[in-house]
Design a protein around this nucleic acid. Structure first.
Lengths: 274, 274
DNA sequence: GCGGTTGATTGACGCCCGTCATGGTCCGAG
DNA sequence: CTCGGACCATGACGGGCGTCAATCAACCGC
């Protein structure tokens, strides 16, 4: 559910190097694929494909999509770059074309709390039209990212011409709200292990790819610190829990990568709801 | 911000009994006003007034509002009643006309986590049209509540006739999303005291009325357990913190009522953001 | 007024987990 | 190959806060 990730972007040649078997020594290889090879330009057909696969524009015909495409500008960022920062005036809506990004807030005490992970087809950003004065989150590229961007006026035009688009965005936002409230609930009542299990399940569902060694590889370069940010915890606590699970064969993980071996068992731990 | 509470419903005669001064002995009186005296019927002019003051329908003329009013049914509930329950098929949108309600989820461990407090003008519920299969929360009346209700078909009709209404709902939902994510962040990083301070400030802003004794009375019959549900904590912890603050003169509180005496100090504790 | 009930307060105890610190491993640069 | 830096693992310690329990004040119905 939530902003799905069908439009799986164009993936470059697998930069994957790990062998088939997974002895303890091979754990450290990074099995993440590099995505969106071309740095600063998304060719027109790719852009069209992204638009056509985005739930937000479902039901529009090619001509209409081309019209919308003309009003969007395509941009790209390198890993570690910020697409926009918390507190800056909200002037654009973004649509991810390829790559991964994380949206996080910085708490008063300085900790980063990750509120959403973004992939192809996901919508983020903000606009005055939607009642947002400033971006509430910082969005940072986890891999090379390509995204389409649209401004306030153009978005308002599109809404005028295609009212159903607004409804789709509303659906989307409603789903995000439901998920955020699920997070609040879990944060308030569950232990670190339970929260981590739920997070990993959600990631596996949204970003998972079947791995050769069996299980589901989460196609995201997440550090322990990132996972800590998503569970409202610390890198140390995350590390401890994951070590235990690795010994039990529930998951597999290394430097900035994670795979789920036994989803059932994780679901058991999570206690319900994803 | 968020779904504001301008439409202050009709308040019946004050059921307030506390004396002017507030010696320690008088703390226990319930200074809450009973709202919406008439049980099962909201007279037409009142309904129109509610609609006209709701942000969602801002900009519509009287005639249009009357048209919308005709498609909504008015209902009322007694304190403790559930307006709808978590998991039931989402078939209605509700608009609070008078009274207070809380929306909460029940965590796997049985704890109730309050995700929103509702007053006149607030929108809640869910519809298939908005992508909701089932209600995600249970909404329970804290006082006698009157609300207007609308079904899927009628809502879709209204959206068709007045596209701008959809945009307003979207604004509203966006604001709720931002707030929910603020909650997630706070839940992950702040202490119980900090969270409670933030919650009280938010309540004072939305439901506060200047009290005779000075300070701001929060017009909600909230128990320690309710506050615990809003802070992701326990009644005991909430009680401890509030006792301390009462000794320091920061707040005043009794059985199911709370007043803020020194908002500045609370804001200091909360550390930022409401 | 008077008991029963509900809600609030306060104390004691213990565990989860955040914090600090150390050492190991992997990776890229030169 | 070697060095340095980033990331991860693991141990020890302590505090915040959840849990259990007893007491008490306030409210309601009679």
């Amino acid at each position: 559910m939530s902003t799905s990730s069908h439009a799986e972007g164009l993936q470059g040649s697998p930069a994957r190097m790990s062998p088939d078997a997974t002895p303890v020594s091979a754990r450290r290889r990074i099995p993440l694929r590099s995505t969106c090879a071309q740095p600063h330009v998304c060719p027109a057909p790719v852009r069209m494909q992204v638009l056509s696969r985005t739930p937000m524009f479902a039901g529009l015909v090619e001509e209409q999509l081309a019209d919308i495409d003309r009003r969007m500008t395509s941009l790209s960022w390198a890993e570690g770059d910020a697409l926009h920062v918390e507190g800056a005036p909200a002037e654009h809506l973004y649509l991810v074309a390829a790559g991964r990004a994380k949206a996080y807030r910085t708490a008063p005490n300085g900790q980063e709390v990750v509120v959403e992970l973004l992939g192809p087809g996901d919508l983020f950003g903000g606009l005055r039209t939607l009642g947002q004065e400033a971006y509430a989150e910082t969005v940072e590229a986890l891999t090379t990212v390509c995204a389409l961007r649209i401004g306030d006026d153009a978005f308002r035009q599109i809404l005028g011409e295609h009212p159903e688009v607004g409804l789709r965005v509303l659906e989307d936002t409603t789903a995000l709200l439901a998920q955020a409230r699920t997070d609040v609930t879990r944060q308030s009542t569950a232990t670190v292990a339970e929260r981590l299990a739920a997070v990993l399940l959600r990631l596996a569902e949204k970003f998972g790819e079947p791995a050769r060694e069996g299980g589901t590889l989460i196609e995201l370069p997440l550090s322990r610190a990132d996972l800590a940010g998503m569970t409202g915890s610390t890198p140390e606590s995350v590390s401890r829990v994951m070590s235990r699970w690795r010994k039990d064969g529930v998951i597999d993980a290394g430097r900035r990568w994670t795979a789920v071996r036994d989803p059932r068992w994780l679901a058991e731990i999570a206690g319900a709801e994803a």
